[in-house]
Design a protein around this nucleic acid. Structure first.
Lengths: 108, 108
DNA sequence: CGGAATCCTAAGCGATACTG
DNA sequence: CAGTATCGCTTAGGATTCCG
């Protein structure tokens, strides 16, 4: 069914893109974890308590589709996969840190 | 139905609070609209194309419960209700503007 | 005007078991 | 290790109607 990717639609679309990237329950946690450098799948699973395999996979795929992370596969045994933020992804750092600070400040 | 409000739970909770506030489909649009000052219900409805009554009401209630907006009722005929950002709400401006810029920059 | 009530569908999310 | 495949539940969200 259709490309799933948002077409050029100007201002009103920016919010959509933002939500698609950070609106998921685990999105920000994952991005946050990747700010400190590339991580393997299992590392992310450990770093993010409460997440399950399915959601991690799903979010990672979504992020890759949105161009904010890169997936690198190494043909080792056992297999190794590393996830890294793209430039686009890194540029979220300032915003997310600000949001995070806001959240911390106001969590009663 | 429990209190719906998140209890003090430290760092991991900040992200939850953030998502509860800006994670809804229309949340940021509403907050955005309120950055330019207090608005009436019907104004918000006009300013945000595509939203419907139910969702606007729902989001506004949620935001009020989260302490980011204030609801003021005037006993006029016909009734008047005005919504304003609280300080907590206003402090989101920087973050959201940053996010918005990010979105605009990367909408293909 | 500013909602509340109702109904309904699509999407999000969680748990677990299985596989190359 | 890094996923896929199923299943089922719970929300979010949309359309519409009614009310003080």
């Amino acid at each position: 069914m259709s490309d799933k990717k948002v077409e050029k639609c100007g201002e009103r679309c920016a919010l959509q893109e933002i939500l698609d990237v950070i609106g998921g329950k685990w999105s920000m946690s994952i991005i946050y974890a990747l700010f400190s450098g590339k991580k393997r799948f299992s590392e992310l699973e450990r770093l993010i308590p409460g997440i399950n395999t399915r959601m991690l996979v799903k979010e990672l795929k979504n992020m890759e589709a949105n161009g904010i992370i890169t997936r690198e596969v190494f043909a080792t045994v056992p297999p190794t996969v590393e996830y890294t933020l793209t430039t686009k992804g890194e540029k979220l750092e300032a915003s997310i840190n600000e949001l995070y600070k806001w959240g911390m400040e106001y969590v009663a």
